[in-house]
Design a protein around this nucleic acid. Structure first.
Lengths: 139, 139
DNA sequence: CAGTATCCACCTCGATACTG
DNA sequence: CAGTATCGAGGTGGATACTG
């Protein structure tokens, strides 16, 4: 896979792009970019990752920290993150059960990007909201 | 909204996090972070943004550049990006019609994050794939 | 506390056909 | 070329109830 592009100058002098910027040998797997985006794209992963970025947390602690997430979705989200090697799960055989979640090294390396995304998000939320109002009004 | 956290040291000497890292006055709108993530999370937006990051492109050009995208999804994706103020659409009243798409300034500012994400993705795809194999084998 | 199981509403997306 | 319209399959996520 490659990330790059080819610029061509037309006879009219306009610069246009001819080649795909992301090109894959196997378009089906989409170069593994989807692997990450699927995790970032689902409804809760980013919030869970951001919470865990601050440190180790238990299941209930996470559920309180992420407003609105259901038990089912927190479980699913954590399992997927664990499967992808982004989160470690530690079970303490106490009664009642106690389980700690923490980011792996790979999970932490993703954190910087996620935070940058959150910051961009917050910085542009008003502009986006305004753009939407304008667009909707124009329709 | 705030991005931050509060560390507390327990009587046992363990550091734990008590407060949500992302806290919103209105949990419903999720601080506008979802506004961005929804766009990044859908199946095609990132690819379209990456293609447009390289320069102006027409509809068909985009469709060729993004393997597998249907006419319908390209239209929907572009409309949503346009509505969010990330993409500009210019119609030339020729026959047949010709429409050019390009990133707005805001769209370009998102590009850096998207590229960073794509790079991270590519850099960790093997590690993630391996983690998944391990996890699946353990089940 | 930390889950699992089930059911269901919704929404996204793909395929297909048609239009200016 | 650049769309729109319609249909239908599949997947995501919420509510609820139950368990070790």
């Amino acid at each position: 896979m490659s990330v790059g592009h080819t610029e061509v100058t037309t006879p009219e002098g306009r610069r246009v792009i001819t080649d795909p910027v992301i090109s894959c040998e196997t378009p089906q797997d989409e170069c593994g970019v989807r692997d990450v985006l699927d995790r970032l794209g689902d409804k809760w992963s980013v919030y869970v990752v951001v919470e865990l970025a601050a440190g180790v947390k238990r299941f209930r602690q996470l559920q309180r920290a992420v407003p609105g997430i259901s038990q089912r979705m927190l479980t699913l989200t954590l399992r997927r993150l664990e499967r992808d090697g982004l989160v470690d799960r530690t079970v303490y055989p106490t009664v009642p059960a106690q389980v700690e979640y923490e980011l792996t090294a790979m999970g932490h390396s993703l954190t910087h990007l996620v935070k940058a995304l959150a910051d961009w998000s917050i910085g542009h939320r008003d502009a986006i909201a305004q753009a939407r109002r304008d667009w909707d009004a124009a329709q």
